[in-house]
Design a protein around this nucleic acid. Sequence first.
DNA 1: GCACTCTTCAACCAAGAGGTTGCACAACCG
DNA 2: CGGTTGTGCAACCTCTTGGTTGAAGAGTGC
Lengths: 114, 114
Amino acid sequence: MDPLSATFAALADPTRRAILARLADGEATVAELAEPFDMTTQAVSKHLRVLEEAGLITRGRRAQWRPSRLREDALDDATDWLEHHRAAFRQRFDALDREIAALRKDEGNHDGNH
Amino acid sequence: MDPLSATFAALADPTRRAILARLADGEATVAELAEPFDMTTQAVSKHLRVLEEAGLITRGRRAQWRPSRLREDALDDATDWLEHHRAAFRQRFDALDREIAALRKDEGNHDGNH
DNA sequence: GCACTCTTCAACCAAGAGGTTGCACAACCG
DNA sequence: CGGTTGTGCAACCTCTTGGTTGAAGAGTGC
């Protein structure tokens, strides 16, 4: 899967978004991350693997713990895509507004409203 | 599915992202949208349904055509989430940098480097 | 009415996602 | 050493996804 698709797919799950939000407070172990959820640690471990493969987190190794931490540039590509296209969309709507305004003005010059 | 998850899930497919990019140039019919892809129009119709249910596009009805167009505020929520959390992540890393700098300075005051 | 076009609906299929349980492995602790 | 803890792996299950084919609407135009 291409990296951008992997990132968006990883973000498309509320559990994973909550894990990311938690990791903004600092690194955490699997058990710590699993605690708020009604779910086995294995399931959380799977979510972490998805996040890791999407390049959103890295995982350390300290004794029997595998602390997860955010990657600093985790959300850059996704943010870039969204901001770029949101800007393009807005331009589109601005152009549409101008067209509509021009049409209205033109109509007014010829036959008024109807 | 919650709206944010639906949005990210919709964006997690390159075909759908290409469709959105195409729609930034103006509205288009299913057949027009399907043309660049090696895929049946039915498959594209399914993608459009996903985009519509995620609130990213709206669909008109003009004779036998169903033109799709972007929703102006389509990407707002996703962008907000990403920007907010990217900022939070960066704050985290800045804090980490300060901690490390403080540690280095402290170490230097006591026993030099090792 | 009839043919034609654009689109959707329904059924199907292979593959993947998200969860479970059970087990294995590695590292601590007595 | 043996027991406990944290984690990962494998197998399994159910539901979803992304595609297909074939048929059915819905609108246009002769």
